[in-house]
Design a protein around this nucleic acid. Structure first.
Lengths: 189, 189
DNA sequence: GTTGTTCCGATGCATCCGCATCGTATCAAC
DNA sequence: GTTGATACGATGCGGATGCATCGGAACAAC
């Protein structure tokens, strides 16, 4: 009976606006009015889509998490293959210049999550899934180390401490070291 | 002629208050009033010490940077010694539970720095000095990787994705791998 | 075309923010 | 004790924010 509006896609569109703003100014600085303006709707529409600002941020974080995971799944690691792992790792580190915006979003949310349990819970869910994808090719501890290194590199790139190229070089060095070790252990045993 | 007040120590005391609040709620959420209240002075005193809120944050970041570097310098790495390097790395990763607060401050500022050039400049200065300390024992690229890994681990601990113990284990594994490689290359060459 | 329901733009409100201002307290110099 | 400079607590202001409210627009059902 009512006017039909696809709630879910509306929320996704708003989440995109949230991400764009978070990448520019950080998650904390995202306001309802700005989101509305960026998405080209009024504040009322935003308020209808999300009961509260916190809900909006949580949804946006889940949204980016799903997007990243979709990409990762598309390049799912096959055990024993070094190359797909490298591809995946580069995906994770978000080092391509094109993905710098997404990396900024990621940092904005991680930073906020450290002080907001609701967000950190969402984030841990994403990480768990990500680790699952990596762990098919590596043991758990190696996977955790790889993830931490990728995140650390991303962070240094965002702060301007590292160029993307240099970060990629470091990441590749780590990966080839892993590959060497696996080869060595498989031949010696 | 005037009433004497040690400006520098006053600012340091305020910086401590800033850090305490940043560790609890993030750097963005630090307000002048809260800082004044936490430090037990009035807003006027805070305003006298710092011309602007941004100045206050920058000073606070410099303050923690100096504190960390003081600790690091005390455990300065000696070339060829594996153990001091391990000590240093553990110092860096801020993994001790006692230093969790400091790690939170660090993240709060790093997150803010990604969107605030003034802060990122200060941060890069600290990182540069830190790298100099590590690079006496490692080549530049290994040092960068170690720093990134340490930061990534700290981050995952703060988000609750990793326990401090597990992070330390991963860091130690990385360090021993580095030590192995150095030994290997020095014996084979 | 009327009705019923959903959607949403506009507006109001209480709160909090950073910053400016001002009057008073404090203390050294003379 | 007077003077002069500094420190600082109190207060005000303009602006922004999250959230609540409300009236009308849009549209399906009949």
């Amino acid at each position: 009976m009512p006017r039909k509006v696809d709630h879910e896609s509306r929320r996704r569109a708003l989440a995109e606006a949230v991400c764009a703003l978070a990448a520019e100014r950080g998650a904390e600085a995202v306001t309802l009015r700005d989101v509305a303006a960026r998405a080209g709707v009024s504040m009322g529409a935003v308020q209808r889509a999300f009961a509260t600002r916190d809900d909006m941020l949580v949804f946006a974080l889940e949204h980016v998490g799903e997007r990243v995971m979709t990409r990762v799944r598309a390049k799912r690691v096959r055990p024993g293959h070094g190359s797909p792992l490298a591809t995946l790792a580069n995906e994770l580190a978000l080092l391509n210049k094109a993905r710098r915006a997404e990396a900024a979003v990621w940092l904005a949310f991680v930073a906020q999550a450290a002080f907001t349990p609701r967000l950190s819970k969402v984030l841990r869910g994403s990480y768990r899934e990500l680790l699952g994808a990596i762990a098919t090719a590596l043991d758990a501890e190696e996977a955790l180390a790889l993830l931490a290194l990728a995140d650390g590199l991303t962070l240094h790139v965002l702060v301007g401490q590292l160029t993307p190229a240099r970060a990629k070089k470091i990441l590749d060095a780590h990966l080839s070291r892993l590959a060497d070790e696996r080869e060595q252990s498989s031949t010696t045993v």
